[in-house]
């Protein structure tokens, strides 16, 4: 279809030229208490936020998982999650599909950043923490360093040079999966996780 390409581009180039407007000034909001804003926004959409000392998250996670009746957990081995039944995402998805779709109760991943304004965690899935971990199991637990939290999206993008380092898939997650398609009534866990739990490591 390179004919289509040539024809479409030729028509666009033949069109009258408009002036290229400058971008008017705009900056995202900043917050005196980022963590508080993050918590308010994420809790408002049914997310859970726990603030924990960085060296205390393993026992705390164990308590959370016990309280939720979790059986099998998926986590990358380097996190050394303390739980009786932990599996790793150690093969391509094709070989793990059945288990991923229906056999994991909770997945633990790390976040590379967070946005206070919208209560958002940012994930860069990779070979150790693939994309489906934050999508298929009904509970998703995210480990986030408080120092990785920015006020707003534009700030985080700039600080982490997203444009220069885009991975295969970059994800912004703000709460558990939800829908309001039936009479604008909110329902959680429609396709993705029913619960999103963020452990903020201070």
């Amino acid at each position: 279809m390179s004919d289509a390409r040539t024809a479409i581009l030729a028509r666009l180039r033949a069109a009258p030229k408009a002036t290229v407007p400058d971008l008017p000034e705009w900056t995202g909001p900043v917050f005196a208490d980022r963590l508080e804003r993050f918590r308010i926004m994420l809790e408002a959409v049914h997310g859970e936020v726990h603030v924990i000392a960085a060296d205390q998250w393993r026992p705390h996670l164990r308590l959370i998982l016990s309280s939720k009746d979790v059986g099998r957990v998926m986590a990358p081995p380097e996190l050394a999650v303390d739980w009786p039944d932990v599996v790793a995402y150690d093969r391509p998805a094709e070989a793990l599909k059945d288990q991923l779709v229906d056999g994991i109760d909770a997945a633990i991943t790390t976040a590379c950043g967070a946005i206070a304004e919208t209560g958002t965690v940012v994930l860069r899935p990779d070979a150790d923490q693939p994309r489906l971990m934050s999508l298929l199991p009904p509970i998703h637990v995210v480990l986030l360093k408080l120092s990785d939290m920015a006020d707003n999206m534009a700030g985080l993008m700039a600080a982490q040079d997203w444009a220069g380092t885009m991975p295969t898939n970059l994800l912004l997650i703000s709460g558990p999966s939800k829908t309001a398609d039936i009479e604008q009534t909110l329902a959680y866990g429609v396709h993705g996780p029913k619960e999103l739990i963020v452990l903020v490591l201070s």
Partner: peptide
């Protein structure tokens, strides 16, 4: 304020 997922595919 934002959708639950923003999915950037590169």
């Amino acid at each position: 304020p934002i959708t639950t997922y923003v999915n950037m595919i590169t």
